[in-house]
Design a protein around this nucleic acid. Structure first.
Lengths: 138, 138
DNA sequence: GTACTTGCAAATTGTTTGCAGACAC
DNA sequence: GTGTCTGCAAACAATTTGCAAGTAC
């Protein structure tokens, strides 16, 4: 995670129009050092490694903010497992029901074709494709 | 809903290997009279129209049972909106973020092509495609 | 008659909110 | 200095669980 410096994180937040604070920088470093799929609690745990006094509420509030600013996407893989995806480029997901693991699937590996007729005035926001698999391993 | 009789519901449950009880029959009638996308609470409300003493816990337990028996699919359209889909044939979904409305999209309207390389021993369980749209109407 | 179901209420989990003190600028 | 953010704890919503009484077969 050291390849993503505090300076980089600050720049990223500023560019997105997010006021910079210590906690937001730490959360950004966890998310943007590399593409990850983490739950709010996993993010909290990682943030606390470097900023032990961070509260759960701050993580939730910050994740909501990041989502509004389009810095991360919430991915609904399971009713009790919402993960935050720091890869905002076009891609799909493979979800292992047994292990809970989430993997990216490149946009050219699985293609979605055809445009459904949308009612007038309705605009397409995003397309989610989730391949749910069972590995047997739990 | 009268086009889906109690006898039909009983037959459906028996065929799926689900022991028949009054509440399960009423829940089945709500779900299987026509294809629907309903939340647990909406299902509870409809069931209580004909069986007023049904408890919320029974609806949740029954929905879990139906899911295991592949009678319904849980659809994660929104973190705070899980709906149960009684259409188990191959199709996709269109979700209106503003109104919460869920519409079916025929399998031939949007096609998913390409088979991603799956790790060995992993088997594909299902593919979910959700088109998220904004209508502006709230 | 026996085992499985139900209803109720309490427990659990994931997330949001209110408020007083603390930090960014 | 001022307005925003944070931490804490309480509030909240959705779902699950334990247990005693009821029901299917």
């Amino acid at each position: 995670m050291k390849d993503y410096s505090i300076t980089d994180a600050v720049a990223c937040l500023r560019a997105a129009g997010v006021p910079v604070t210590l906690q937001r920088v730490e959360i950004a470093r966890v998310l943007f050092a590399q593409p990850v799929h983490l739950s709010a609690d996993q993010i909290l745990a990682r943030v606390r490694e470097s900023a032990p006094d961070t509260s759960r509420a701050t993580v939730y509030n910050t994740l909501r903010l990041f989502r509004e600013k389009r810095l991360v996407r919430a991915l609904l893989v399971d009713a009790e497992r919402v993960v935050y995806d720091s890869n905002t480029t076009l891609h799909h997901h493979l979800y292992d029901i047994d292990t809970g693991e989430v993997r990216d699937v490149a946009a050219d590996e699985v293609m979605v074709t055809g445009t459904p007729r949308l009612p007038p005035g309705v605009e397409l926001e995003q397309i989610d494709v989730i391949l749910r698999v069972r590995s047997g391993r739990s």
